[in-house]
Amino acid sequence: MRRSGELVQWNNKGGYGFVRDDTGRDYYVHISKMTGVSRPRIGDTLSFETAVGRKGRLSAVDVTVTASIPAPQQTLRDIKQAQGNVSRYAVGLRTAAATMMTILILVAISTGHAPAWLALLYAAMGTASALLYRFDKLYAITGQYRVSETNLHVVDLCFGIIGGLAAQEVYRHKTVKPRFVATTWAIALAHTLGLAALAFGGFKMLFPGGY
């Protein structure tokens, strides 16, 4: 027998929650049992079949959203505003790091220690990284599937770090989680040291002829 109920709890990161039917009984619901591409929000009305899940827990299966609460209307201006738990000083360091790497790239090219295409590579990958952070921020707001942290780090590592740092500051995104922040700074440090060595001739033994 198909039932209808309201989603009363939802863990967006884990993809699970509880739906309460008209009798007040709660059913466990997992994202894998839902149809559609958008994740539900608390307050949505769901239609579902019932089943007994693991450990004898009542679960909802074949779940569809029949009525959704309106999504909060936010603009890019809204998501660029600083969050209360983000230090402006800490965020400002990202601009400083991105600026330093940009200067080192220009120095390396102007002194003949690096080819001009290096700047184009950083610019292209930086743009790609910034777009990924932007999409992930928007997905987080609308409750859609997120860009994985691994993908963000991989693009940053592959010469996208300048754009990634800039996007983190502009969108106030991914600036709090300790492990993510630590990995971001490790990538930034590696690129900064590499660019510094390149700018000041540290790689002359590898490229004795210069560019």
Rank of each mutant, 00 (worst) to 15 (best):
S59G: 00
A90Y: 13
M101G: 12
A82C: 04
G53F: 04
V52F: 04
S87W: 09
V52G: 00
T102L: 11
T102G: 15
S110V: 03
A90H: 13
I42P: 01
I105D: 08
T111I: 00
A97Q: 06
I69S: 07
R57D: 03
G112Q: 08
T75G: 10
N85P: 02
H113Q: 10
I109V: 15
I79K: 09
G92R: 08
L104Y: 09
Q73S: 12
P72Q: 15
T99C: 12
I79Y: 11
P72Y: 04
I79A: 09
D44V: 00
R88S: 12
V91L: 13
S47F: 03
A97K: 04
H113W: 07
A71Q: 11
G84V: 11
T66H: 01
V61F: 08
S47L: 06
R77Q: 11
V91T: 14
L104P: 05
T95Q: 08
G84E: 14
A97S: 13
I69H: 03
G53S: 05
S68T: 03
T50Y: 03
T75S: 15
Y89D: 02
G112M: 07
T64D: 11
K80F: 13
T111W: 09
N85R: 14
P70H: 01
L76W: 15
R41K: 05
A114T: 05
N85I: 07
M100R: 01
I79P: 04
V65W: 08
L58Q: 06
L104C: 07
G112W: 01
T66N: 01
G56K: 07
T50A: 07
P70M: 03
V52C: 00
R88V: 08
M101E: 05
I79V: 15
L76N: 10
A114S: 11
G112N: 10
V61T: 14
M100F: 08
I103F: 02
T75H: 10
A114P: 10
S47R: 13
A90R: 15
S68K: 07
R57M: 03
A90L: 13
V63D: 04
T45M: 00
M101Y: 05
N85D: 14
A90S: 14
T102K: 03
P70E: 06
V86R: 15
T50S: 10
V52P: 00
R94M: 09
L76E: 12
G53M: 03
I79E: 11
V65Q: 07
I69D: 04
M100D: 01
R88E: 11
L104S: 08
T99H: 02
K80Q: 13
L93G: 14
L46P: 00
M100C: 08
V52R: 06
G112T: 08
M101S: 02
I105A: 07
L76F: 15
I79T: 09
H113K: 10
S47N: 09
I69K: 15
G43P: 01
L104N: 07
D44I: 01
V91D: 12
K55I: 02
T102P: 02
V86M: 12
A90F: 12
R54V: 06
A71S: 10
R88W: 10
S87A: 09
T95W: 14
M101W: 05
